[in-house]
């Protein structure tokens, strides 16, 4: 990757963030939703909320879900909407490689998604028994950022692959499928063994396991990190291919 590619990614991310922050309510939506979900679904359940191990895992699951939802939604829908605006074909005429534009989305939308975790952590720390060392929290953030890449790339692929109305439908199906299969709603300990095995192939399960490992320690199965790397490669290639194939929206 050349310097130009990286520099232009930063340029695109910067101006996307400036634009987003001019309409702050959009940012507040992203920031508040995961925190509310934790407040309503986890905090009232004493059994989970008062057990440090379960509470921490619940906070992690909710964080993974928040980042996944943001990646799929924000990328899939904002890209497919941008593509329908006439500004997008203009940007394509500029001397900027496709990778810079995709990374620009990662650095802007992706960064906002990670920022949305902060209120989740605050609520988790104040109202549940969840606990972690500060450096573990930092490690968790890094793990979360890495394991979010496949979701972002799926979002990018959906965004470039289909019009916005179709993107909304596909993103919802993928999001709830991944959330359930990945053990983000119900912990995988409650899964039947066949479902548990199947679940390990999902990027959502791998993301959850990676972040739990980063925050709580314990052992990390090779299948988890190998799986994440495989998903990053496959979804990354798919996203770039669909970007290159895209010629803007055309009505027949």
């Amino acid at each position: 990757m050349s310097n130009t590619t990286l520099r232009l990614s930063g340029v695109h991310a910067k101006y996307a963030l400036i634009e987003t922050f001019r309409i702050p309510i959009a940012v507040i939506g992203t920031m508040v939703f995961p925190a509310l979900a934790l407040l309503f679904f986890v905090v009232p359940q004493e059994y989970v909320a008062q057990n440090p191990l379960y509470a921490t895992q619940a906070v992690i699951s909710m964080s993974v879900f928040a980042v996944m939802a943001n990646s799929l939604f924000a990328f899939g829908i904002s890209i497919s909407e941008d593509r329908e605006k006439p500004w997008d074909p203009y940007l394509r005429t500029l001397p900027v490689p496709g990778l810079s534009r995709v990374l620009g989305y990662v650095f802007s939308t992706g960064a906002l998604g990670l920022a949305a975790i902060v209120p989740v952590l605050l609520i988790g720390g104040l109202f549940t028994a969840a606990e972690a060392d500060p450096w573990r929290v930092v490690a968790g953030f890094v793990a979360l950022a890495i394991s979010a890449i496949p979701f972002m790339m799926i979002g990018v692929a959906v965004g470039y692959g289909m019009p916005s109305k179709a993107a909304i439908a596909v993103v919802q199906v993928v999001m709830f499928g991944f959330a359930f299969a990945g053990g983000l709603f119900l912990p995988p300990e409650m899964f039947a063994s066949w479902l548990d095995t199947l679940s390990r192939f999902f990027p959502s399960r791998q993301a959850r396991d990676l972040v739990i490992w980063a925050v709580q320690g314990g052992s990390l199965e090779p299948a988890t990190w190998l799986g994440i790397i495989a998903w990053i490669i496959v979804t990354g290639v798919l996203a770039l291919l669909l970007y290159r194939r895209d010629e803007g929206r055309r009505f027949h």
Binding site: Y15, K85, W87, Y90, L94, P95, V96, P97, G98
Partner: peptide, 21 residues
Amino acid sequence: DYRQRQRLGCTPQETALPQAL
């Protein structure tokens, strides 16, 4: 190839400009 477009100048449609910028 984006490098070939270094000396090319194009215009967006006027309705395309990002309004918040």
